[in-house]
Amino acid sequence: MPKNRTSKYRKKLGLSPGSIIYTGDKETQELFIDSFDYNSEFLDEKTHANIEDVFHYKTTKSVTWININGLNHVDAIEKIGTHYNLHPLTLEDIVNTSHRPKIDDYDNYVFVVLKMLYHNANDEIINEQVCFILGENYVLSFQEAEGDVFETVRERIRYAKGRIRTLGSDYLLYALIDAVTDHYFMVIETMSNKIEDLEDNLFNGFSQEEISIQIQDLKREILKVRRAIFPLREIISKIEKNENNFIKDKTIHYFRDVYDHVIQISENIEIYRDMIWGLMDMYMTTLSNKMNEVMKVLTVISTIFIPLTFLAGIYGMNFANMPELHYQYSYFILWGVMIVLFLGMLYYFKKKKWF
């Protein structure tokens, strides 16, 4: 029975460009805001309940990272957009959770859309959109719900690890994008392990139906990961060209390192994609070989009984001396033999996994 699927774009049909309509499915998500305001000398980390509480960070001389969870709170998104002078099309893209990863340059900020991938407790791939606004001394990040891949960045800010507290907001944007990219490696590593396990199961003759379902799940996963990662090459390439004033030249080198990682991940994805198609071919070949083995055995059995059936067809049961005809329970014995033979053949075929 087909699943009931709803369109994410139906909410936006007929609306003018710049209409801020949340297209996700987390309608009851609470608004959660946390901020890091820092420089090399101090750190101010806070959690906020209202969007107005973070407005004053715009005028500080230190670097500020404001992380907003809860895209279903469109009013809060509009308020911060007005305060930071964000374009209506930017706000529209922020709450459009099915948007393709991209980068846009504006006069007063840079807008980046990425797909954040990670595994949940059930080993399922979570594909969540995350948006970044890079300004002169701030980074705004927008997420659909709590839970992300940025905890390592928070730790580096809290404990002044590395150079993050001594550099500007452009380096903070790099650190956040790098954290997203690092989790891509973890996702494809898990995918690689699944592919190797499936290969072993195919060679060991495990349940064919279960393996076919796992192959289909892997195909969907690889397509999801590919759609998330491939546009990132275009984003990093545009950043490398440094067509705006918000990313300093010395930070470009770090983005080049991210670009190398993205290329490596993209190559691995293509390899794994070919391996998954190879698994499907191997699965079909295994089914064909198994069917050939079954047909060979059945052909041998049929060949043995063909001459016996031929002789029985000519002479029938027309012999004068047949002691079984005079037994009182011959009919029931014959039925018993036939039933036992039938059940024995079923057991043999089941044991050989022919059905």
Rank of each mutant, 00 (worst) to 15 (best):
Y9H: 12
P17W: 07
I21F: 02
D25Y: 06
K26V: 08
Q29N: 13
Q29A: 15
E30R: 08
L31R: 11
I33N: 00
F42A: 06
D44T: 04
N50H: 12
D53W: 07
S62A: 15
I68V: 13
H83K: 15
L89I: 13
L89Y: 05
V95A: 07
D104T: 06
Y109V: 07
K115D: 04
K115Y: 00
K115M: 05
N122H: 07
E128N: 06
V130I: 15
L140V: 08
E151R: 15
E151V: 12
E155N: 14
Y159M: 01
Y159V: 00
L173V: 05
L173P: 11
V180T: 12
D182F: 10
K194T: 13
E196R: 06
D197F: 04
I215T: 00
Q216C: 03
F230D: 03
I236L: 14
K238C: 02
K238I: 06
N244R: 09
F246W: 10
K248P: 02
H253N: 08
H253R: 08
Y259S: 15
G278S: 10
Y283Q: 12
L287G: 13
S288R: 08
S288V: 01
S288G: 08
M295G: 04
V297R: 06
S302E: 01
L308R: 01
A312D: 00
I314Q: 03
A320V: 09
N321Y: 13
P323E: 06
P323Y: 08
Y329H: 14
I333G: 02
M338G: 00
I339W: 09
G344V: 03
W354A: 09
